[in-house]
Design a protein around this nucleic acid. Sequence first.
DNA 1: AAGTGGTCTAGACCACGAC
DNA 2: TCGTGGTCTAGACCACTTC
Lengths: 243, 243
Amino acid sequence: MDEKVAERHSPLNQRIRADIELNILSGKWPPGFRIPFERELMDIYGCSRMTVHNALSRLVESGLIERRRRLGSFVAYPGTHATVLKLPDVKAEIVSSQKSYGYELLTLNRRVANKDDSTRLGEATRTTVIAITCRHLADGVPFAFEDRLINVASVPEASIVDFTTTPPSSWLLMHIPWTESDHRISCIDADADQARILGLPEGTACLVIERRTKRNGQIMSQVRQIFDGRKHSLQGTYALSNI
Amino acid sequence: MDEKVAERHSPLNQRIRADIELNILSGKWPPGFRIPFERELMDIYGCSRMTVHNALSRLVESGLIERRRRLGSFVAYPGTHATVLKLPDVKAEIVSSQKSYGYELLTLNRRVANKDDSTRLGEATRTTVIAITCRHLADGVPFAFEDRLINVASVPEASIVDFTTTPPSSWLLMHIPWTESDHRISCIDADADQARILGLPEGTACLVIERRTKRNGQIMSQVRQIFDGRKHSLQGTYALSNI
DNA sequence: AAGTGGTCTAGACCACGAC
DNA sequence: TCGTGGTCTAGACCACTTC
């Protein structure tokens, strides 16, 4: 086998991973190619099986190889492109781009979930929700329009928060961290309201990010954020393992 | 510590991972919380340090915890939401939704990269490129407009492919697998050409996916795909470790 | 100096699945 | 049946960083 031996002084298991990645990404080992057995790699690198096994296991996690007992390890067939998108908190995003952050609460209602609310939360039960619409500004210019529902049953503390000064996204991130979430990214033509709030001509293409956050399977919040499509885009890289 | 002991009959290292995940996602262990030392977890689970260490290492990879020598392991502070988006091949996406797939080559040029081409490829060198525009149809209805550049220096085989019948995305996926890629997702108002090709009113909000694929750091191809924003959206879930 | 995590070893037994 | 990967052990030494 080819030992390109990346990064001479890094730990052995990382070198093994990097070597195999290189062979796959360079096209030398095509999809379906059987890579050496663990016991062969032990001899090649002069190390124990545990070291080899850990390296290969992480390649499985990253989706680069598949392993089958008795048959060996094979370069996987990539069916799709995938990308990891980071969707930062709007406030953090504005601040980190050296602009001043502004926040305006537009509406706040506390109500029993209506039909639309239940659809957004993905729950049939008639819970109480806090419905918030607000606007984020960067250097005084409208940056994003946010429309959020908070499930009061799941996040009772939200009842006593003063959302006239605290952006709900930032508060939730600080107080209800590490939730599971699913996202939907789409685009729309701004309607009259949205255009007015974002200071755009009606019909401008806008980027929409919707997110539902859950904890223990229970939905805590749903949010729809709308951005000026001419100024905002999302970028992601697909890096394999981060050696 | 709390042993919620998920999945009784799964391997021990996965149970350890799942237990710690549960404590973090449920909010019981907030960001900054110091989780038990490896040697404590050995006692708690009655296993060797290697088993504990492997479990914790994978939690580091998933971004859920951070570890510092001498101090211990801590629940990480989530700065951003992240999502894994799958961006399937357009043909595969249409076929899997039970619709008939159609493909039309619109233009094909082979030329020395001009200024715009070089920008798109992110390379200053004046290489030869194949520039393709084409249209994907689902059940005969325009589905996506694709504008692609292929770097001939990196993908010489592309010179002899008949792109009048073969969609370039599908060919590249089959023949140049396992490239690295980066993506950009944005939206635009369809201009006259785009509207005509997609069969939409001019000015309709459209979703745009741009992708550059590399191999060994060398750019192989750049593509811009445009979809009807009213019908197309991207969805992603953030699953932590896949236990 | 002391204690944490980082890495590795040389074994072991088991589970699965092709044959 | 038998060879592969899956899991685990009971050690070991090292690197780093705070004390």
